[in-house]
Nucleic acid binder design. Structure first.
Lengths: 213, 213
DNA sequence: CAAAAAATTAAACAAGTGTTGAAATATATT
DNA sequence: AATATATTTCAACACTTGTTTAATTTTTTG
């Protein structure tokens, strides 16, 4: 009934994902993608349409999985804490856990995906639509949860703090080459657990700085 | 004696800067650059060589100005505090002030430049060499200064905190469209003073979370 | 002013770009 | 098995890519 032959579409998406992660949207040609996927170039147009549609398909494939997980974690920790507001560090963790966990243990596909997210996040023209559509609603939910925990903070402050969190997360995903170079062997480049351990308290403390404003 | 005719080179760099900022390295062609500069395409090769050399020339033009300022500010605040370690918030400010100030009041050229920095920072293949060469030494100097202020923190922790700071800064530069969309008119998109006011305490608090580890 | 050097122009290069159309093959449905 | 649908192939399209070459103009130098 449905397409039993879904192999090709995913081959293309996998190849595209990996290449986009390294060289960006404009740095990858359809022929490079289909060549890596070992598939005829015309199949890209046949299955997806324009090049930009391939890019968006790559994004959407994992965005839904991710957002479901993150909302679930947020709702869980809110429910656990009721009737009190959820602890700040748990909220931050709910926001970051699914991302860092998959980036760490999700395999190459997820690594590539996050590298693309990092590019998009810093590239308004391409990422604007998708990011707004899929991540901004989530962001508002999280900011609201945090606001219940730090009621005295001004909404504008929290918005900017969220922004800093987003940037810190993003850069973490974007590749480890520079990082490990700078660290001079101080940390293993693939050790994203180390990030998680430090990001949550760092960000939590940053938010709390606006507790009494 | 020296090249009195430096007009063309800068016309090309200006055009390239602006275009790279919006569409990235691979998204811009030499003909687009020279067309915007109102100059013959062959002049790009004549003055700079390969396309990548244009890109690097764009980067270097402002990197030196920036780094000189930042090191100066750091040295100043260290000297002022002697024999005590410089206050943490002053160190953070020295690290961020030149960037945010120029991004805010430096005109379109600086805005474009920072947008490119943001791309590069999240794009190892292109940014690796330049960023390492020009910004990493500065980073080490700052981390060292911070370590004197928070002597009990582990070097690895501080390294990661620096990393988060870098990410937060980077995303701030990358463009304001998404940000203003998410904020729902909560903040003026061009109001980078607002960033500075909040980024410094946010980051300072984050670092201090590792005071007693 | 004449000679030398630097800068600019116009044309061309081979190679790669995204995308399309019609024919051929494989799969699914009746 | 025969028909209809979905997928794959191959070739070609018009266009853009980065870069180079040689001729020409402009600027600097002696």
């Amino acid at each position: 009934m449905m397409s039993t032959k879904k192999k090709t579409k995913d081959l293309i998406l996998d190849a595209a994902e990996q290449l986009f992660a390294v060289r960006g949207f404009y740095g990858v040609s359809i022929r490079q993608i289909t060549s890596k996927a070992e598939v005829d170039p015309a199949l890209a147009s046949y299955h997806f349409g324009k090049k930009q549609d391939i890019f968006e398909a790559v994004m959407l494939r994992r965005a839904e999985i991710l957002n479901r997980e993150r909302i679930q974690m947020l709702d869980d920790c809110i429910r656990r804490a009721k009737p009190n507001p959820a602890p700040l560090h748990e909220i931050i963790d709910a926001f970051t856990h699914a991302l860092l966990n998959r980036s760490n243990k999700g395999g190459q596909g997820w690594k590539s995906y996050f590298a693309i997210i990092a590019q998009i996040n810093n590239h308004p023209e391409l990422g604007g639509v998708i990011m707004s559509q899929y991540f901004d609603p989530l962001a508002k939910k999280f900011i609201a949860a945090i606001h219940e925990n730090i009621p005295n903070a001004k909404a504008e402050d929290l918005f900017w703090c969220y922004h800093f969190l987003s940037g810190a997360l993003t850069l973490t995903f974007s590749g480890t080459e520079r990082i490990s170079k700078l660290s001079d062997g101080l940390c293993a480049s693939s050790d994203l657990d180390a990030v998680h351990e430090r990001l949550v308290p760092f960000i939590t403390a940053g938010f709390k700085a606006f507790e009494n404003n």
